[in-house]
Design a binder for these strands. Structure first.
Length: 556
RNA sequence: GCGGGUGUAGUGUAGCUGGUUAUCACUGGAGCUUGCCAAGCUUCUAACCCGGGUUCAAAUCCCGGCACCCGCACCA
């Protein structure tokens, strides 16, 4: 099936292997003219949901990021492992998991290799010999700036999400300090996959659309949940079982943990149906605990049934406050929001008051940061000498270097780190799924039943015969449609049937044919791809007729 | 990365026990024709994945690389 869909997609200009004249490169594809148009239409539809309907803010940030970002995000640790491969059975393992000493993950490749040899580590699968561990990083590394002092290590981003986290303070101000709000980004991600496969499903450079929705963790109810409360979806929770039920019911029965997650399941379903995913081949599956990403607390994937089997195309993850906290920790900046109490409350507060006369001589230049850490701590939980950790360094603050002060204070609110729900869409996979779900074959006749809103070409215009003025008339209609912003194609080659077939194969929903009656009465036939039915419509105002048809077939 | 399979015009293929100008069909272009669903006729364009070896001679045999497919491993 993949080969058949790919053959059509390639022949007609949807997808081409990239760098083909140099032999190609695994994991890289070009979108041809129709593919690029289809991709743009899918993205425009996505934008209609997230930016227009939900009012989220779209940003656009660099693909290349300095190393610090991924140290904070966890991708460096998570993505860079020392891997050893069994030379007999081909199994690969994280080398630091095979040796018996503690903190083996901090060893260098050479040290680890020495340790492996010392312990005589063999392949846990088959007992075969293992190779020297080599670092494997799923991120593309490069250098930013000229060689020398100013040179910095950079990486191509493996996801677009980090920008929304780093821009949180500006976004928070942009939304005039009110939660919840969302920020989105549509762009490229890069992962140096060991073994990219299956065409568009595992790329090394891929398109993604991600939304980061920031909200107050004390309130996971979702305003506007009504919109999708009654939507029926097939759910596979990680506690087992398969349920077809409404999202309202799923939340009531705690199959989906909160309204916010359920809302984006509903929105995702609606978006996918609109671009032409087959509802019967769509389900939502909750991640098992062990497959959860390092940042995620809960995750529901939209999966579609392809010829490869069930395939993830969207992930809706509860990233909690993981990312914002990490960036706070690594950057030292505050990424908090403020929750205002309904009424200001008078509170008895306990504060740690550092004594700089003592701290100064003890910690010298670090004293200020130690003091700041102390102020952050909960005064009621400390006593005696206090241990403070800053960036892995340990400071012991003696009992006499601080006092605890009790005071009454009017408190009108408090700062907190927002939680994040992240709907993340793999555009390339979605595009392929749309192609496969739209692909119909009747004998040798192939039709791509693309929905009008995403079809690269909306209408084909033909003269029944390329003569007697029919061709000029058809060309004129084509020009008028194009001028009205409707993507139209003129074709007068071959028989009329062949031209319909060409349009069917690239998913064009409508065809207009100028015939001899058109010369007399100013009407043309309008043919619908899926029903093959024709009706006569007036040439005058044809732009409106076509654009109305496209709109009527759009859900949102 | 490991194991297995495959690689011939845009697509699908024949040739592959080495030997003329590499077969056929579809698609595509041009022309004729054609009064609504890949009609017909004429004609044209267009390929041996790349590199090396064996040989008088390689699409064909051998080696290496690359790409694709399947399985394993990997997969925020």
């Amino acid at each position: 099936m993949w080969e058949k869909v790919f053959a059509v997609a390639r022949r007609r200009g949807f997808i081409w292997p990239a760098f083909e004249i140099y032999g190609g490169m695994r994991g890289f594809y070009d979108y041809g003219p129709l593919g690029a148009a289809l991709k743009r239409n899918i993205i425009d539809t996505w934008r209609r949901y997230y930016v227009f309907q939900e009012g989220m803010a779209e940003i656009d940030s660099p693909n290349l990021s300095p190393e610090d970002v991924f140290r904070a995000s966890g991708h460096l640790d998570k993505f860079e492992d020392l891997v050893t491969v069994c030379e007999r059975c081909g199994s690969s393992f994280r080398a630091d998991h095979l040796v018996s000493i503690e903190n083996a993950d901090s060893l260098s490749a050479d040290e680890l290799w020495q340790e492996m040899k010392k312990e005589g580590v063999k392949c846990p699968e088959c007992g075969g010999p293992l190779s020297k561990p080599e670092p494997f990083n799923l991120m593309f590394r490069t250098k930013i700036g000229p060689k020398g002092k100013r040179e910095r290590t950079g990486y191509l981003r493996p996801e677009t999400a980090q920008a929304m986290f780093m821009d949180f303070p500006s976004l928070y101000r942009y939304f005039r300090e009110k939660l919840p709000f969302g920020a989105v980004q549509i762009g490229k991600g890069f992962r140096n996959e060991i073994s990219p496969r299956q065409g568009l499903l595992r790329l090394r450079e891929f398109n993604m659309a991600e939304a980061e929705v920031f909200f107050d963790p004390e309130n996971k109810r979702w305003p506007g949940f009504e919109r999708y409360r009654d939507a029926e979806v097939l759910l596979l929770p990680n506690t087992g079982g398969e349920f077809r039920m409404s999202l309202g019911e799923a939340v009531e029965k705690s199959i989906i943990k909160n309204e916010a997650l359920a809302y984006f399941v509903g929105l995702t379903r609606s978006f996918l149906l609109e671009i032409g995913i087959d509802e019967k081949r769509l389900r939502f599956r909750e991640h098992l605990m062990e497959e959860m990403a390092h940042y995620a607390d809960d995750c529901w994937d939209a999966e579609v049934l392809l010829s490869y089997g069930w395939t993830e195309i969207v992930g809706i993850a509860d990233r909690t406050d993981y990312d914002l906290r990490r960036h706070m920790q690594f950057s030292g900046e505050s990424l908090k929001a403020r929750r205002t109490f309904k009424e200001a409350v008078e509170m008895e507060v306990e504060e740690i008051v550092p004594d700089f006369k003592k701290l100064g001589p003890l910690f010298k230049g670090d004293a200020k940061r130690v003091a700041e850490e102390l102020k952050e701590m909960d005064a009621s939980s400390v006593s005696g000498d206090i241990r403070v950790d800053i960036d892995g360094k340990e400071y012991i603050v003696p009992e006499d270097a601080y006092t605890i002060r009790k005071a009454k204070k009017k408190v009108s609110g408090e700062d907190f780190v927002p939680h994040v729900i992240e709907p993340s869409y793999g555009i390339d996979r979605i595009l392929y799924a749309v192609l496969e779900h739209s692909y119909m074959k009747d004998g040798d006749y192939r039709i791509l039943k693309l929905r009008p809103s995403v079809a690269p070409v909306k209408v084909g215009v033909f003269p029944l015969m390329p003569k007697d003025g029919l061709d000029e008339m058809a060309m004129d209609i084509h020009r008028r449609l194009s001028a009205a912003g409707i993507r139209s194609v003129y074709d007068d080659s071959g028989s009329i049937g062949r031209r319909y077939a060409r349009m069917d194969e690239i998913g064009t929903p409508y065809c207009i044919t100028v015939d001899y009656d058109s010369l007399k009465d100013g009407t043309v036939t309008l043919r619908q791809r899926d029903s093959k039915e024709q009706e006569r419509v007036a040439i005058d105002g044809i732009e409106g007729v076509v654009s109305t048809l496209i709109k009527e077939n759009t859900i949102n």
